[in-house]
Design a protein around this nucleic acid. Structure first.
Lengths: 341, 341
DNA sequence: CTGTTAGCGCGTTCAG
DNA sequence: CTGAACGCGCTAACAG
């Protein structure tokens, strides 16, 4: 089964009666190599189908031109879009992408971080697990000069490059939209307040209420953990069961908002007439649910590409002027929240 | 920025006054090492936080304990679940996963296959691009003894390990279910007939009709390409526009079926009373759409795990008795197709 | 401009 | 049971 399949610079060297190092240099356009030998070498290399042995290159260079990605679950719309963007940009720039998922478990996140570190990844892109409140497992990367980029679920009180959206602003805009549509008793279904991101969306929500002269009703402000469908159904039910009957709901993700729509309908409320609803992320389900769900577009693919650029720029010592990339979200109004002409 | 961070077997050797080779053997429980030196070595290794340099190991072994994954898009429900299963199983077994997406483009698939080959991946898992009708770019792996596992979108007329579902059977079951619910003029919205998978689903569809004494109406059998939402909306519209008015629709994926529901409703047909609809994959949208969509559960995560097992078994020369893993799909009936009690 | 040499860190002969 | 030596394929320092 094993043939002579891989050809090395030694093979080329022997064939051209040159030294291996000459081949190596010729192939990477080293200035001190004659134009004609360079041509000859390149020609033969192509002819023989030479391809550098990446494992040898890695060992030699002590790094692997591989970007590590550490996220909770690959199979979530936001994250799979993020990874898709990461992969697209990385491959276009000649980098590989290695992925590991933490299943939202801190211990696994720590283990996998170590494993990626051991592989000498040249950079790490991560969106924290929902449990993560300490960040020592990232320090090894800083110590060894490996750039780290935090995306979306970023740490608090821990320096580093961050790619994220303005969650306060987005929460504010979503809420203001509901108010603009005439809602006055607005509820919020949020995620874990350990997460900056959910805290900020809530803060934006509250600020919008205040700025428009509305008072926040604590009974209408719910906080879950991961905002899974199961959890969201429970919260949505609670919301419509107690006598408060909100006339607007801002869900901190689309799953929560969809559950709100479904429960509201089940309880006999009309959407958006009785209750206007808006979500967050602009997942595909927004166009599927009836009525279609308004949402805040969250540029996942784009965030992936930017994260990769940041890694590569850091490697090239192209100093970033800023540690943050704050992307803008966009309100995507659909029928679930439109009560005016 | 650079400290002495990585410690090698030489460091341990010096400290214990042993030879590096002894350390190497002790660490991997080579039989010819004394029980006590073995203990001593392991203890110190743990103490000093020794971790093998994977790049060196790879170079030495001429392979990289990395499984390559070549798929069209990471951000699609079926594929992101597949990858999630692959990653989970691979990491549990000590393998890494490197991903590359082809964007359903044959040329990119070929390039990326080459790139993965160059990395000396120890195995390849792939689901073909929609365009792929030739398979030479996989032959390099066979030649070098690298196992390849095709998943879901598998090649025709090309040998190799394959992990897939029985698409004929699944198509048959979905159709039989509609017939069982009283449908008589059943339509099919299918994907590219270049793909085995869609051809088989169609074949199952036709066979079910025949077995139940129904004749197929060519006007009710549509074939798209990728079955994207845009494409599906067009096909669904066509279906309900011409005078045929199907009383049942089998969509070859959930997107198509959801579009059928939405268009049917828009055209004033009641689902499932006027037209019963069933999809394929059991994507999350099935529970979101109104009415909830019946579907064929497609064990993506599981298929990922099995694919990894096949790769690892092949590497260990654990001969597979069969080249195929045929997983079973499961009918998940929901409101969109239930017309009986 | 090109060749020689010396590792990168590990595993694996072959000796003892 | 252990050590010495070599090489995986490539690159970079140092000669010429």
């Amino acid at each position: 089964m094993k043939e002579k399949v891989y050809i090395t610079i030694h093979d080329l060297a022997k064939e051209l009666d040159l030294a291996p190092s000459t081949i190596s240099r010729a192939l990477k356009d080293h200035p001190s190599i004659g134009a004609e030998t360079r041509q000859t070498v390149k020609k033969l290399a192509k002819l023989r189908g030479y391809r550098p042995n990446i494992m040898a290159v890695n060992l030699r260079n002590q790094r692997s031109k591989t970007i590590g990605v550490l996220i909770s679950w690959i199979n979530r719309p936001f994250l799979s879009n993020l990874i898709s963007g990461i992969e697209a940009e990385a491959r276009a720039r000649g980098y590989n992408v290695i992925i590991s998922q933490t299943t939202d478990n801190l211990a696994i996140e720590q283990d996998n971080a170590k494993a990626l570190y051991d592989m000498r990844i040249c950079g790490l892109i991560t969106s924290l697990s929902i449990e993560t409140l300490e960040y020592q497992h990232f320090e090894q990367f800083y110590k060894s000069g490996t750039p780290v980029v935090f995306v979306d679920r970023v740490p608090v009180d821990f320096d580093g490059q961050k790619v994220l959206i303005d969650n306060f602003r987005a929460g504010y805009d979503a809420t203001a939209h509901l108010i603009d549509q005439g809602c006055r008793r607005i509820a919020h279904i949020g995620g874990s307040l350990n997460q900056m991101l959910y805290k900020e969306r809530l803060r934006g929500f509250l600020q919008a209420l205040e700025d428009h002269g509305l008072s926040a009703n604590p009974d209408l402000i719910l906080s879950g953990k991961s905002l899974s469908r199961e959890e969201s159904l429970v919260m949505a039910t609670e919301l419509f069961k107690n006598g408060h009957s909100p006339d607007g709901v801002f869900g901190a993700n689309d799953i929560a908002a969809v559950c709100a729509i479904q429960i509201a309908k089940k309880m006999g409320r009309k959407v958006p007439e009785d209750v206007a609803i808006i979500g967050f992320n602009d997942d595909p389900i927004c166009e599927i649910v009836d009525p279609p769900l308004s949402s805040m577009y969250h540029p996942a693919f784009e965030m992936g590409k930017i994260s990769v650029s940041r890694i590569i720029d850091s490697l090239n010592d192209t100093r970033q002027t800023e540690d943050f990339s704050i992307l803008t979200t966009e309100l995507i109004p659909r029928k679930s929240s439109l009560r005016k002409g």
